[in-house]
Design a binder for these strands. Structure first.
Lengths: 131, 131
DNA sequence: ACTTTGCCTTCCAGCTACTAGAGGGCTTAC
DNA sequence: GTAAGCCCTCTAGTAGCTGGAAGGCAAAGT
C-alpha cells in the first residue's frame, strides 16, 4: 500500500507518516522505485499511533505502546499503567487550566472595559505578584 | 540594573529575558562594557510578561498587552477583549481535556491490568476508530 | 599582582510534533 | 507526448524556551 492510501486509511497526514518513519516509530518496506510499501501490520501500527496521539499520549509513550502491542508476552498491567500515567497528566493539566480560568475571570470582572485607559487587568499584571 | 538582578526581580530566567529581547519584547539599554542595563520601566515590562505568560497569554498576545500598557490613550475595552479571548481559549482546552479524561477513564476501566497479554486498551487503540 | 569565582556576553544546538515548500522523479490516463 | 497526480528527499520554520561552549569583565581573597 502506498503512503497516500495508508494516510486515508489511518487519517494521518502523509507528512506525519513520513515523520513517524524518520523517528523510527514505523518501518514500512520499500519498493524498487523507492516508494514506501505499507503492510497491513504497519497500517495497524499507524492506526494505533493516530488513536493514541488523539488521546494525548506523547510520541515516546506511543513508542512504548507500540512495543507492548508487538510483545506477545506483555502484561496488560503495563499498558494500563501507561494509560493511567497519561490520565494523571491530563488531570493535572485540567487542574492548572481551571485555576487559570478562575484567575482570568477574576481579572476580567474587575476591568470596566470601556473607553477609559485605566484598567485593572494591566494594573494587576504589572504591579502585584499574583504567584 | 544587570540582567541577573532583573531576573530575580521578575522571577524570569536570565535566558528567557535575553530571548524576550531577541524577539523585541523588551529593549534594555547597554552599558559601555556591553552589559544590559534594565531600567525600572523595563523591569515592569518584564513583570507584565512574567505574569501574562503565567496566565497563559501567548507571546504575541503579550506583545499586544505591552503595547496597550505603553499607550496612554488605550481603551480598557481592548485589554479586556484580549483577556476574554485568552479565557475562551483556556475554556476550550479544558473542554477537550475533559473529554479526553472521560475516554481514558473508559479505556482503563475495561482493562484487567494483570499478567495476561490481552488488553482492551490496545484492542481499542488498534481496532476501532473512536473518532 | 595574581587568582579564583561569578557574573556577563554571543552563538549554536536541541526540545515536541509536526508542517510548508522547493525541486525533482514515477505512473497513469488521455 | 504530455498533463495530472502521486511519490521521493532535503531544508527550514513553528512556540517558547533551554543548555552548553567559549570567552570577557568585575569583585574579592591571598
Amino acid at each position: 500500500m502506498n503512503i497516500g492510501a495508508a494516510a486515508t486509511q489511518t487519517g494521518l497526514p502523509v507528512k506525519t507518516i513520513r515523520y513517524y518513519e524518520e523517528i523510527g516509530l514505523v518501518t514500512p518496506d520499500r519498493r524498487a522505485n523507492g516508494y514506501r510499501d505499507f503492510s497491513a501490520a504497519c497500517v495497524e501500527q499507524l492506526r494505533l499511533l493516530a488513536q493514541a496521539r488523539h488521546l494525548g499520549f506523547s510520541l515516546e509513550e506511543c513508542r512504548r505502546l507500540l512495543a507492548l502491542s508487538a510483545d506477545e508476552d506483555r502484561a496488560s498491567r503495563d499498558v494500563r499503567a501507561l494509560a493511567q500515567q497519561n490520565l494523571e497528566a491530563v488531570r493535572e493539566k485540567i487542574a492548572s487550566l481551571t485555576a487559570l480560568e478562575a484567575q482570568l475571570e477574576g481579572l476580567i470582572a474587575q476591568c470596566h472595559g470601556d473607553d477609559a485607559p485605566d484598567c485593572a487587568i494591566l494594573d494587576e499584571l504589572m504591579g502585584l505578584r499574583g504567584d
